[in-house]
Design a protein around this nucleic acid. Structure first.
Lengths: 191, 191, 191, 191
DNA sequence: AATGAATGAGCATTCATTCAT
DNA sequence: GATGAATGAATGCTCATTCAT
């Protein structure tokens, strides 16, 4: 009977949209409430502070990103397959939710994120690092500090998303080419 | 005799340092003036508004970045060489001026940047695109939408800088490995 | 069978405890309801506004104080006896219900008290004034504006209560000495 | 040439008047600024917070009160003289500055007063205690816990001030009678 | 009758910008 | 030219009160 989405979700959506447009720091809580179609007081019934709201939005989407990166992973599959899945997940997420991805990756968050949010970021990072390490062990990924290689690919994905966000349109073939290129960055060069 | 740096420069330096720590949006003009050792009134004699100051800082360093990317470029050299120079310039800049690089690349600027600043960003982009296009023409760089390939490498560089900024320490060999990996992203795969 | 105190009383108790800790002005209605174990809505069923609640608390205890000051009074007894009873009642009340006494006497109430509450205060005052006037008529109390003398003794009692509230501990003998001193303030000096 | 009172003083005066009428807790900073004839921003240039302003007002007047209680004190004079001076100073202060005296003594301040303010209150109290102790030593003041006796007289003075504040008008003779009565409270009873 | 979600005016505080000195 | 006091709109947050359930 009640098809209205729960208030909390409505607020998270409104917050994401405002934070995306104006940056967490530049956003006014009142604007979030207005866009959510409710009063400030109500917002504060659901989130005790702007910081708490920011962290909730961050976790909502960093968690979603983590799920997408992890979904269907199989520790025995070739690393090339793992990478394809993760990269695909990342790019699909960025394409489907450019606002969420932009909020997560195009902004500086340090000052207000709490430990739990940082832990979630760390899990995403750890997941990537594991993939690189496993790839190096089985000889599919080139030598080098795993965190450095991860920084390069992750950065490449973010760069791609940013350019798409800024207006670049890519068809399926181009996206496949992008994935190939990103894998080449990681892949062990043929001796 | 007068070795004091010109007031304008002092202000740009102070502004960069404040913007880096607190984000453009979070920074108080009074704090910039204080760190520059002068009054707000004087700051406003040099820059008509906070936006103007932000744009000046942005241009100061985006211009420096463009110089470094361009420095010593020779249209006839192999693209591999051009890339090495550009990548090296980028990474050196990020290493020497992490504050400036962070300000340029880790923050969202859209709302206050003016046309002139945007044009400068466009020139950096154009410079990269030219390199990619030339590389494709001479068969050194893989096929694909040039802006897409550029987004990937540029993003990789930014990702690397961010991870270094977050504490990762890399020696010369690792940096060389990073450059190899980044080039692999662009390089035309062997047959 | 039903030993639960009536809702209204529960609310008055909760309100007193919150007003005592935080001042009438600083207290949140929601906190009162919470401490009373019920919802705000229910509180508002019993009291139409915060002001009404404040007045009810004030009257509840100013009335109690009046009862104690009056209890067992006999118009024919010596004024010294009346005074002993009244002073003792005041001090006992302050000792037994420091919260209530503090709320009544250590705070400024003017802005929200209504006529009925003011009338109750006036009755306390009138009762004291009568005692002073009677004492003067029978030659037991010194000459002087009765309201002035009342202000002095009443103030002395409040001062004592405040100091006890702030931590001063007094035994029975000291309390008796205090009563003597207070009476000396009123008593007609020998010749 | 410049006869305008210094801004800080203007603010302290405005704050006192608003705090007196509405209680520290009930007062709006904006109202203080308005009554001082300036903007909120200016107020905040002189006082970093409402608490700081409240403490400054408290200290301004508690200090004045201390001065008045102390003025012209001579350790060798009879205690009766010391008392007359102190009581007179207190009453004169309350008469001349009923707003300041009311702010100091008719309100509950605990939650926002800082250490320095508390120390000032302690000095006033210590000064009174010394007088009582000296009086007891020389046999002019009755036996009893000095802080208790002090609480009684100080309370009597506050009670008198409150009643005057509430409208009681007293001539010189009545005020002298009040002083006599207050001294009787302290004085050692004849044999 | 009881609940507690919702409202929005009000509060303390900050900060870009102006301007008299 | 330089200063910094002054302005007041805007921000994050609270709370008395209402009302649908």
């Amino acid at each position: 009977m009640n098809d209205r989405p729960p208030t909390r979700e409505v607020l998270l959506d409104a917050a994401l949209s405002v934070f995306t447009e104006q940056t967490y720091g530049g956003a006014a809580v009142a604007e979030v409430a207005k866009r959510a179609g409710m009063s400030v007081g109500t917002l504060y019934r659901y989130f005790p502070s702007k910081e708490a709201l920011g962290n909730a939005v961050f976790r909502r989407w960093k968690g979603e990103l983590l799920d997408r990166l992890t979904a269907g992973a199989d520790p025995d599959e070739p690393v090339r397959t793992t990478f394809r899945r993760a990269w695909g997940g990342l790019v699909a997420f960025a394409a489907e939710r450019p606002d969420a991805f932009g909020f997560l990756e195009f902004q500086q968050h340090e000052s207000y994120l709490d430990e739990q949010s940082a832990a979630l970021s760390a899990r995403v990072s750890a997941m990537g690092e594991e993939m690189v390490v496993r790839g190096q062990r089985v000889g599919e990924i080139r030598a080098g500090e795993p965190l450095m290689l991860l920084a390069l690919v992750y950065g490449a994905a973010v760069g791609l998303a940013r350019t798409i966000h800024d207006g670049l349109v890519l068809d399926r073939a181009q996206l496949a080419a992008a994935e190939d290129a990103a894998w080449a960055l990681l892949a062990k060069p043929e001796n």
